[in-house]
């Protein structure tokens, strides 16, 4: 663990990514304390609508007179809530399915693995659009749609790694010694593939934040006046080119989040995967 922390600090890419990611999470948690206008997520101030950036509103105001900076920071909580729930359920569904499908070689594993492959053969965002459209736009449908469509990513990577682990001598000898299947899977295989799962999860946080903003942009996210980044960007289109500042803050916030995850994920892969480490 201490080794891992020192490697992250030494690895510039990973460190920058981790700092960005922690910043977004910290801002999301502390949101109501740090924003100048915490009530602007819900209330309107028509008298100060569409004002350009100033010392009072750092990133300007929107069509309802809300302070865009406050709304973007408050929106980070929504993005974080959606992303955390989706990623957690992706891990909880995908990892066990991948382990079982990879360890056993029978009908069940064919059905589980095949199901994951089928879902992966269809573009995720398109499926998510169809699901949210059917359920009606809300934060719950976004979470459900993305959880249903994203777990196969974990299932596939865990499946592949488990399959190759089954041919390792230490796993074969554990099986030969009569160790139970569950013990082999959870005590021998899982710890050895954990690093791949961690790397996959880091990148998935970025992908999920992206996907949820895309759904919001298409009008399928939480309904207005929720300060959802994608929806804010979509709203700004009606006020271009005059309100050039409108989409700036939500776009940058999304960029920083995804960037943090990509950099941290890249760095972690370098650190945890000895094959790429040598290449540098």
């Amino acid at each position: 663990m201490i080794n891992l922390i020192t490697s992250i600090v030494r690895h510039r890419t990973a460190l920058v990514g981790l700092i960005l990611l922690s910043l977004v999470v910290a801002v999301a948690i502390a949101a109501p304390l740090i924003v100048p206008y915490p009530e602007d997520a819900q209330t309107f101030h028509i008298e100060r609508r569409l004002l350009p950036p100033s010392s009072e509103a750092l990133f300007g105001t929107d069509r309802m007179g809300g302070d865009i900076f406050s709304r973007v920071v408050l929106g980070a909580r929504m993005t974080l809530l959606i992303t955390a729930t989706v990623v957690l359920s992706g891990v909880l569904i995908g990892v066990p399915i991948g382990l079982v499908a990879g360890y056993y070689n029978n009908g069940i594993s064919l059905v589980l693995g095949g199901g994951a492959e089928i879902l992966l053969a269809v573009p995720q965002i398109i499926l998510a659009i169809a699901i949210t459209q059917s359920l009606g736009p809300s934060i719950g449908s976004v979470i459900l749609a993305l959880s249903v469509t994203y777990w196969p990513f974990w299932a596939r990577i865990v499946f592949t790694e488990t399959r190759s682990m089954c041919h390792e001598t230490f796993v074969e000898s554990a099986i030969a010694l009569g160790v139970s299947a569950w013990r082999v899977i959870f005590l021998h295989i899982l710890p050895n593939i954990a690093s791949s799962i961690v790397v996959r999860t880091t990148t998935a946080i970025g992908t999920t934040a992206f996907a949820s903003a895309t759904l919001g942009f298409l009008g399928l996210g939480p309904p207005p006046p929720s300060p959802e980044w994608g929806r804010m960007i979509a709203e700004s289109r009606d006020y271009l080119p005059d309100a050039w500042w409108y989409a700036l803050a939500p776009g940058l916030a999304l960029l920083l989040t995804v960037l943090g995850c990509t950099l941290f994920g890249d760095g972690l892969r370098d650190i945890l995967d000895p094959k790429t480490r040598r290449r540098g």
């Binding site: 994608g230 960029l255 950099l263």
Partner: peptide, 23 residues
């Protein structure tokens, strides 16, 4: 390239429109 992977395409689209078409 990392920046362009992180940026939302619909956001780039709007910024390109703002610069090349509107301004």
């Amino acid at each position: 390239s990392v920046l362009f992977i992180g940026v939302a395409p619909f956001w780039i689209a709007m910024q390109l429109q703002l610069l090349f078409s509107m301004q």
